[in-house]
Write a protein that binds this DNA or RNA. Structure first.
Lengths: 226, 226
DNA sequence: CCGATAAGTTAACGGCGTTATCTTCAGCCC
DNA sequence: GGGCTGAAGATAACGCCGTTAACTTATCGG
């Protein structure tokens, strides 16, 4: 009756010429909301996002190259907080190994708090850019470089074997926390014990093992064990 | 010219009335081949499988409930071998901890040898059956129960702390090997050191940590560490 | 006020998983 | 041996998807 536009569901007025950056973040918000609500990547379609924002599907492509880029942007926005959370987890902790432990715990908890985003970032192939940029984005989202620094401090303190390569140790610890996080996300119906306590114990074991095991050395022919 | 049927591409003659079980395994073969060739789950469409087998898409549904069931069947057929491979890896090994180590190495190697199947089985949500049967199928595909038994032998031998819960330790070791396997599969462009040597070192550390760390205990209020 | 251009729409393409409905042929009994 | 039955498979279609080409509309600089 009135001349309200009401194109689909939400009435939208066209953005000013400066930038449709407003729509940009509105799209991110809607995509994130749908992702959390449905709990599944493929249930979040471009068409549903567009409808939620009150716009037609092709308009999404004015702001994101494709669906993958959009989902990645949602996840990266969320995981920008991971670094902050990890830093908060180590305030007032002097022992650098205890710091590693706390960072690990914070990582697992953060992943379990944002399972869909975690899955998209870390449990999929990187077919998207395949080779270059994606590695950097994953590094950034996982705060990997800060983790390497934290490991380096532990090596310098003498708590970890002197010749340990911080990069390798960080990759190993990352494997451990990623393993438990991703399994808990992907297979929650397994009869898991309390995730927090399990993470506690596993990280304690892993740190103890790394402190007492001779450091990694490159692929010499056949390594001796035990 | 001749009266060859040639419905789409491969000439197929209708199966005998006994069962189209022939087609059943032909579909599995084609799906597996496509999965390996394309290296991506969503590139394997029902239509492409049907074309490869020489049949129309709906015929697939005479043999499999849906696409997910078909893909799962492909993966389970492959991972039926995992148990055998792990058993082969421990022949002649007496030390039960060394056995755990070798099982872990075999698991990682097998996963890396069949990355697409690994991803489908262990890196996706179990939305499919969600709750019941899937847990059993994952248990079976990962040979988890045999792994628990192997851990129990290590506990009985005294190599692992006396009161360790074999189920919990097995979950922890599974987390470790799954972590490194899935990260290597999902993020191969990271600058990984040699996967074999890395798995060596990580498993050695993990076993050492588990042998020296007090056993896991249930979620009492606040656990002490270090 | 008027063109340029950014913001958004309309219409459509090709592909997907899946279903309802129809055809055809192998096997069985009389 | 001829007709019935039921399994194996085909045809056609539905509704969804991501994405693109082409068009419209409103905002802003001059």
């Amino acid at each position: 009756m009135s001349r309200a536009p009401t194109p689909t569901s939400a009435g939208r007025t066209r953005a000013r010429k400066g930038e449709g950056e407003l729509l940009h973040s509105e799209i991110l918000d809607a995509a994130e909301r749908l992702l959390i609500e449905t709990g599944s990547e493929e249930a979040v379609s471009i068409r549903r996002i567009a409808e939620a924002v009150g716009v037609t599907p092709p308009s999404i492509y004015l702001h994101f190259a494709d669906k993958d880029e959009l989902l990645l942007a949602v996840c990266e926005r969320q995981f920008g907080e991971l670094h902050r959370v990890m830093e908060e987890a180590v305030v007032g902790v002097d022992d650098p190994v205890e710091q590693l432990y706390r960072r690990g715990k914070a990582y697992v908890r953060f992943g379990l708090d944002h399972p869909e985003q975690y899955r998209i970032l870390f449990m999929r192939a990187a077919d998207h850019t395949m080779g270059g940029p994606d590695a950097e984005r994953v590094r950034s989202a996982s705060s990997f470089d800060h983790f390497v620094d934290a490991v380096a401090r532990a090596v310098d303190s003498g708590a970890l074997p002197k010749d340990s390569d911080p990069l390798v140790v960080a990759l190993e610890l990352w494997s451990v926390v990623h393993g438990i996080t991703s399994l808990l996300i992907a297979k929650p119906m397994f009869d898991w014990p309390d995730p927090d306590a399990l993470t506690d114990h596993l990280l304690t074991s892993a740190c103890a093992g790394l402190m007492t095991t001779p450091p990694f050395s490159a692929p010499q022919r056949r390594r001796s064990r035990r």
